[in-house]
Write a protein that binds this DNA or RNA. Sequence first.
DNA 1: AAGTGGTCTAGACCACCAT
DNA 2: TGGTGGTCTAGACCACTTC
Lengths: 252, 252
Amino acid sequence: MVTNKVAPAERGVPAYKVLAEKLRTDIEAGVYSVGRKMPTESVLQSVHNVSRHTVREALQILLSDGLIYRVQGSGTYVSGRQQDTRGRYVRSIGSLDEIIVWPDTNTEVIEPFTVVVEPSIASRLELPYIEVSKATVRRSFEGIPFVLTRHYVEPDLGAKLAAEGVPSVGEGTVIGAAEKLLTKPIMGARQEITAMNAPEYEAELIGCQAGDAILLIERLYYDADGKFVEFTSSHFNPRRYSYRMELRRRGA
Amino acid sequence: MVTNKVAPAERGVPAYKVLAEKLRTDIEAGVYSVGRKMPTESVLQSVHNVSRHTVREALQILLSDGLIYRVQGSGTYVSGRQQDTRGRYVRSIGSLDEIIVWPDTNTEVIEPFTVVVEPSIASRLELPYIEVSKATVRRSFEGIPFVLTRHYVEPDLGAKLAAEGVPSVGEGTVIGAAEKLLTKPIMGARQEITAMNAPEYEAELIGCQAGDAILLIERLYYDADGKFVEFTSSHFNPRRYSYRMELRRRGA
DNA sequence: AAGTGGTCTAGACCACCAT
DNA sequence: TGGTGGTCTAGACCACTTC
């Protein structure tokens, strides 16, 4: 019975993650220069004393992060790409983690959580009734408002959030606060992006004219059980906000 | 020497991809209802007569597509959502691979690749001169046009693509054709989404009125070396197209 | 306690690239 | 032809959920 269970190098952290972190650090430190070859799987295997499978799991992480690319029969190469930003409030969003924190912006409460009757929203959250808790907030960047967001949660959760003073002026997000009150972690969100002509109410709050084209982004957050936790509907002024994301190659 | 090499079920297609496709079809056909449990790894293993590793590779694909989610100790669940695909062409895009193929739509060439002088575009592609090759196409879904796209590549590449009859009527994408002419693979794209009021020319071609809010999506594709290969600018009619994506938790 | 997904090992054959 | 990454098997222990 061969069962060499190699103890993870750190408490509770899987070996492949430890290895991936090490390689990531090496790449960012320039140990393997851009466009050049990385060590082969075989080498990594013996150097770090793990199985090939573990090596491949580590490389898979770097691959899906776009740090490396691989060519069958040839080798593994460092790929690297720079970043840039300026002007408008540009956010690069590729995963949920980047939404839960929303740095450098301020929240302004237009309307705290109160129960309203909105069957279509309740149905989106798959609630067995027609009431939901709704709050409206506005976010600003450098003092200039750029988005109006309506948050919808089930009434119970809305009451708890309201009791904690959420949404609150300053930093933090509603979904971030909601997660702390839940047993299951937020697992993901389904997002839909479209354009619409600004209604008067929204236009005034985000600093544009009625009829101007604005971005509408709707998100449905769900927890690990697949239960929907929050629905948000955000109206963005496109001159003050740009939705940017990086698309990466997956497997092949 | 145990070496049961199970022949892939199809010509050259790996077993895990075949299995993933099968499961995807089943999910979309509603064989496993939303929010309910999928078969366990152990069951899939024996039913499809493959190793557990192969099963996990297949499930990994569905996981990264957001079709399923998994809870340790509990099981695998379908996270799919019913689509309200009435008339609109709804796409769910999470990775580059889903862009390179664009099923069920038709391409119409408005203008083939020709060299034009556009300094701002050339600069976006980081070309050392001000000329670029430009082509304009329109895509339709079920016979109804919904997007007008301008493609920009460096003049050399544009000439080669033109010689191959790209863009062409029918299926296939420009970036897909371009990749075949390159030495390095397409690695990713930087994408920016915003809204604008439709100019007259675009409005007419995508079936809306001038001034209507439309979606503008710009993409800058780059290869494994980080070299920019193509820039595209697409104007979508939001009533006929919806940009949908799944945001997932990364590390946790 | 039983069952599920998460991690890991050892070893094999294959497809492809470089020489 | 030898080396590299791609695919696959068999089996093991672990962490966690569920009963």
